[in-house]
Nucleic acid binder design. Sequence first.
DNA 1: CTTGACACTATGCGACACTAAGTATAGAAT
DNA 2: ATTCTATACTTAGTGTCGCATAGTGTCAAG
Lengths: 107, 107
Amino acid sequence: MKSEILKGHLDVLVLRVLEDGPSHGYRVIELLRTRSAGTFDLPEGTVYPVLHRLERRGLLSSSWTTGAGRRRRVYSLTGPGRLALAAGRQDWAHFTVAVGAVLKEAT
Amino acid sequence: MKSEILKGHLDVLVLRVLEDGPSHGYRVIELLRTRSAGTFDLPEGTVYPVLHRLERRGLLSSSWTTGAGRRRRVYSLTGPGRLALAAGRQDWAHFTVAVGAVLKEAT
DNA sequence: CTTGACACTATGCGACACTAAGTATAGAAT
DNA sequence: ATTCTATACTTAGTGTCGCATAGTGTCAAG
């Protein structure tokens, strides 16, 4: 599967994963992989920049935790983040309907 | 709706439209718009390059027709084009399942 | 004779997923 | 002890592709 098809959709997926509670980058990667049954097995170089970008936009907030000796940056959904997630869900629904309409077999 | 979400999906849509028979660029644009109920209202600067790219890849073939005084380049699906369309359909199905799995509300 | 739909071409930009390379800790295996 | 593996984060650079923009030209309607 080509990688461009993810373009523009990754943000929503990340926001969705964080909707269930704060988590750190590495765990976000794992969650995306397991929840998608292996389809979204994303390299770190893909996910971390997304996290940074979303934080810069105010959709996430982060803080360092040095709990188990390992330093982790834990991300949480912000208010705007929740709004963006809701909007993203709608966009996705709309998008799939449109693609489905074009793609559907001729009768 | 952000425009990046189309990335990587446009090729399949164009191939699908041409599955119903050859047509020229402008008409492809119209078909995408009407079949998607207005969602995919794409500028020429988006669609023509796609057509050229798909032809370069051998998925389409084209020929000039100067029928009504107006010169038109008519595109047809090739054999490889049909295969690519089939693959693209499958990719789309797979992709939506995966996104759906991640996006679905917590129980 | 101007407006608007039709029809195609070309240049360049910006967003973003990904590659690749690097840093660093903890626990298990040899 | 040491090496390997998994964990955990960073960043510079690359390539693709949708889109903006601008330009060319035909044709019918008013």
